[in-house]
Nucleic acid binder design. Structure first.
Lengths: 163, 163
DNA sequence: CCAATTTCAGAGTAACTGATATCG
DNA sequence: CCGATATCAGTTACTCTGAAATTG
C-alpha cells in the first residue's frame, strides 16, 4: 500500500506544539532541502565527474578568483583541511591552479584554469535549471525575500551566531 | 593580516554574471547555511551525546509517533538504510522503540520512550535558541515567507523536482 | 508473482580533530 | 613569540549501492 506513505510524505506540519527541529522549523527544513539538493546534484554532476563540493568550489572560484584555501574554507564554513581536500582534487585534475601570493610567500591563491572554466560551463545549465524548479511554486515577489532571508542566516552563522 | 579575509568573509555578492551555484544562488546559500547549522548543532548536542540526525529523528518521532523506518527515510529524503542506522542507535540506547504494526507483521513502527522524550527536552532549548538567532536580522513579517519558501522547495524535491 | 519493508554487508564521501612546518 | 597559512595523518559521521529475507 503506497497510499499510506504517500499521504504522510506529502503532509507537512503547520503547527508543532512541542518545540525543536520538527517539520515546521527552519533548521529541519533547511536540512531536508539540502539533502534533496545534494542528491539531485550528485546525479546531475555524475556525467562530468564532479562532486558537489568540487562543483561548488569551482563556482566560487569563478566568481572570486584568487581566494586562498583558508579563505574558501571560512567562506564555506568548513575547516581548512576539508577544503584542502577538495582543492587538491581540482588541482590534480588541472581544473584549478594555485600560485604563491606575490606579497606573501606562504599564501597560495587559487583560480580556475581554462579546462576548469570549460567543465563548469558544461555542468552549469543543469544546475541552473534545478534552481528554478526549486522555487517554482513560490510567488515571484516572494523569491527575493526567501533568498535574502537565507543569506541573512548565512551571515549570522559566519559571524558566530551570537554577534 | 586578518583584515583581508574579514572583508571577503563578510561580503556577499549581489550579482553573478555567469550562472551556477555562486554566492547569490539559493543552492549555494542553502548549502552554506546547512553546513553552519550542522556545525553549531554538533557543538550544542555534544553534551547530550546526540548526533545531528539522531536529534532530528527524535524530533520527528515526537511530532509523528508511529512512523516506520521507510516512512522516516522518505520524509528525510535519504535511503532507508541510512535512516536505519540512526534508528538502530536510538533503539540501542533506549531512546526509541519499534513495535510490530498490528495490521502488518512486516512493518515496525517507531516511537519515543520516556527517556527519549526526556533527553530531547534537555536538548531542545539550545536548538530553539539557535533558530531564533538565525533569522534575527530578518523582518518579522518576512520570516514566514522564508519558511514557506523553503517548505515549498522541500516539497518539490520530495515530489521529484519535475512534477 | 509483485510491491513494500526490513536488514546485512561493504563502499565511499565528506567532514572533523590533532599535529607540524612556514611565513610575516 | 604570535597569528595566519598550509598540509600530513588519522578518525568519525553520514550516506549510498547491492543483495537477501519477509509480508501481504
Amino acid at each position: 500500500m503506497s497510499a499510506v506513505e504517500d499521504a504522510s510524505l506529502r503532509s507537512v506540519a503547520k503547527s508543532a506544539p512541542d518545540g525543536g527541529a520538527d517539520e515546521a522549523s527552519l533548521i529541519y527544513v533547511v536540512g531536508r532541502v539540502n539533502q534533496g539538493i545534494r542528491r539531485e546534484m550528485r546525479a546531475r554532476l555524475a556525467s562530468v565527474d564532479l562532486s558537489v563540493q568540487e562543483y561548488t568550489a569551482l563556482s566560487v572560484l569563478r566568481a572570486r578568483p584568487g581566494l586562498s584555501n583558508a579563505q574558501l574554507a571560512r567562506r564555506s564554513l568548513v575547516a581548512p583541511q576539508s577544503m584542502l581536500e577538495t582543492l587538491a582534487k581540482l588541482e590534480a585534475r588541472g581544473l584549478a591552479v594555485r600560485e604563491v601570493d606575490p606579497g606573501h610567500g606562504r599564501i597560495l591563491r587559487a583560480r580556475l584554469t581554462p579546462p576548469g572554466r570549460a567543465l563548469l560551463a558544461v555542468a552549469d545549465p543543469s544546475i541552473r535549471a534545478m534552481q528554478e524548479q526549486l522555487l517554482a511554486d513560490v510567488p515571484a515577489r516572494d523569491r527575493a525575500i526567501v533568498l535574502r532571508g537565507m543569506v541573512s542566516a548565512m551571515r549570522r552563522l559566519s559571524a558566530g551566531l551570537d554577534a
